[in-house]
């Protein structure tokens, strides 16, 4: 594939902003968590695009491995976060019978 790395970055930016918009707008907690996953994926894509860029920008190339490794870690953490978040959702549902963010205002002044 000879797509310029810039396009990969652009794609990542688009995905990130869509995920952010969804994160701000949606009320359903689960959907919000999904938007977070989306953003994390965008970050992953950014890392990989950067790795590709650094691999290619010298003549002959040298494979840059930091990108993929970090991406692995991101995936792991995303999994962890999704699990914990969903456990919280379950606990929340048990307590309030709702999954709407608007009903969770215990932090209010």
């Amino acid at each position: 594939m000879t797509v310029p790395s810039a396009h990969l970055f652009i794609l990542a930016a688009i995905l990130f902003s869509i995920g952010a918009a969804g994160f701000f707008l949606r009320r359903n907690v689960i959907v919000v968590l999904m938007c977070i996953e989306l953003m994390l994926n965008a970050a992953n894509l950014t890392f990989l695009a950067a790795s590709r860029m650094h691999s290619l920008d010298v003549p002959g190339g040298r494979l840059d491995l930091q990108g993929p490794i970090f991406a692995i870690f991101v995936i792991v953490v995303a999994a962890v976060e999704a699990a914990v978040g969903l456990a919280l959702v379950i606990a929340l549902y048990r307590r309030k019978q709702t999954v709407s963010l608007d009903d969770v205002v215990e932090l209010k002044d």
Binding site: F23, F24, L101, D102, V104, V105, K108, D109
Partner: peptide
């Protein structure tokens, strides 16, 4: 400013963003 502590998570998220 006090109204910022609305407890609404979406608002917090917005501020963070």
């Amino acid at each position: 400013v006090r109204r910022m502590t609305s407890g609404s998570i979406a608002t917090y998220g917005l501020w963070m963003g």
